[in-house]
Amino acid sequence: MWRGDSIFLLQNLIMKDFRIRYRNMSLGVLWSLLNPLVMMGVLTFVFTMIFPNPNIRNYPVFVLCGLVPYSFFTIAWISGTTSIVDNSGLVKRVPVPREIVPIASVLSNCVHLVVQIGLLLAAALLFRGGANRYWFWLPLIWVLELIFVCGMALATAAFNVYIRDTRYIVESINTVLFWLVPIFYGLEAIPAKFAEVYQYNPIAALVVCLRDILLKAQAPPAATLEKLTAVSMLTFVVGLVIFQKGKRAFYDHI
């Protein structure tokens, strides 16, 4: 029924979000840098001064490799979760494909992400010196994270229409995730029997891949990449199916 241009609309919605967010901020994009830098400083202080770990070198870059994917995931997932309810005016008034709303909401956080990846790469260059050919893996693994977040957001956005508590559940999961993703510790520290399971979490897998590429200058392990790809794709498909089911009665519940 709606025969518009989904890509054009998506682009417009993302630009809208971006403009609104940054037009009212004097420091603009600098805010995206502040949060990871502060967290990096605090965690570096705690884990080099209070609980020193001699096995980890370049701790600031090490921890940033964990913080950037984690903070993007949490922010994008939450904004995707609440997107349908937040944009009820749009959902109730315009017959656009509903999938576009959470996806646009997730993707509009990419401005933050690009800035933070820039910071991460700059830190890697500074502490490790020089890029390597494995950097070509970076676009692929970030795209996989995006696919994963979109899948999660589609599912929870649909749930959130029917049960508004969903966003609080998502927030709690995010808090727990801070400890269950190897952000301030390495994969090596995890006992062997858990290490395998850990990598089925795409965020953890992404962190592992990033550290291999940026710190160890080696290709990410194939097994981890496979898990990252499989789980991300599967999540997206499942998220889409849940959303398709849920969207039929969005109008009646928002």
Partner: peptide, 22 residues
């Protein structure tokens, strides 16, 4: 639908047009 007060008229035209299916 989808108009936002902080955006200019021109920006709102583009968003609204995309929403309406142009």
């Amino acid at each position: 639908s989808g108009f936002h007060p902080d955006l200019t008229g021109a920006e709102n035209i583009r968003i609204n047009a995309a929403l309406l299916g142009l």
